[in-house]
């Protein structure tokens, strides 16, 4: 794990769930982790929802001042660069699409200084309506790079159909991910499968599903 990990993607691709998984794993292995919820787009279903779980696991969570309140203002009252320079590891959960990545652009100069210590992962989901075609996923990735003024370093294939995800769902996403990866010339960090499916297949990395309607938690 590099010092700074930035997670971007189409809204609804599973960015917050990936960020939460990475943070929980890093914390479990004894690392000091900070998560920044940089989502200025979504009013609900965001990493800020996991405040209590993070604090129980010693993960620091930094959110926009008005996240999960009734104030619809995308105000950021923190400096990612300064947080990144402090001890431990930083995970930045960016808002969806190029619209959400605009907030990241504000910190691009500072983040670029981390050089090889910075990872920026683009999360893709083959089953998301507007990124079903590899070409659509590629176009969105470049739009996010333009808005954030940063370059991705790899792709995370998080193809899923929510609660309807079965083994076949994830297996049939591998070709799609491969095609996106080839088109943009970036490696795939991993393809995900929910741990609840108990899929014994080393092409996948098991993840927990934290982001779901609270009545199913």
């Amino acid at each position: 794990m590099r010092k700074v990990t930035v997670i971007t993607g189409h809204y609804g691709s599973g960015k917050s769930n990936i960020s939460t998984n990475l943070a929980m794993e890093a914390a479990a292995s004894g690392k000091k982790v900070t998560v920044v919820d940089l989502d200025i787009v979504n009013p609900y279903f965001r990493t800020a929802d996991f405040k209590d779980m993070f604090s129980e696991n010693g993960i620091e969570l930094i959110t926009p001042s008005y996240a999960n309140t009734n104030l619809d203002i995308p105000a950021l009252n923190f400096d990612i660069e300064r947080i990144a320079k402090s001890d431990g590891y930083l995970i930045v959960d960016v808002g969806g699409d190029d619209d959400g990545a605009v907030a990241l652009g504000r910190f691009s100069a500072g983040l670029k200084e981390f050089g090889d210590e910075l990872d920026m992962f683009y999360v893709i989901n083959r089953y998301r309506y507007l990124t079903k075609e590899p070409s659509e996923a590629v176009e969105l990735m470049y739009n996010i790079e333009a808005a954030s003024r940063l370059k991705h370093t790899a792709i995370i294939n998080n193809s899923n159909l929510g609660c309807d995800t079965v083994a076949e769902t994830v297996i049939s996403s591998l070709d799609y991910a491969e095609e996106v990866s080839k088109s943009v010339n970036l490696p795939i960090v991993f393809s995900t499968v929910p741990n609840s499916l108990s899929l014994d297949d080393n092409r996948f990395k098991g993840i927990e599903i934290y982001v779901k309607p609270f009545w199913e938690r």
Binding site: G12, N42, P43, Y44, F45, Y127, L161, G162, C163, D164
Partner: peptide, 10 residues
């Protein structure tokens, strides 16, 4: 309602 509007489902 907002919950349905913001919710992701297949």
């Amino acid at each position: 309602d907002g919950l349905l509007g913001q919710m992701m489902e297949p």
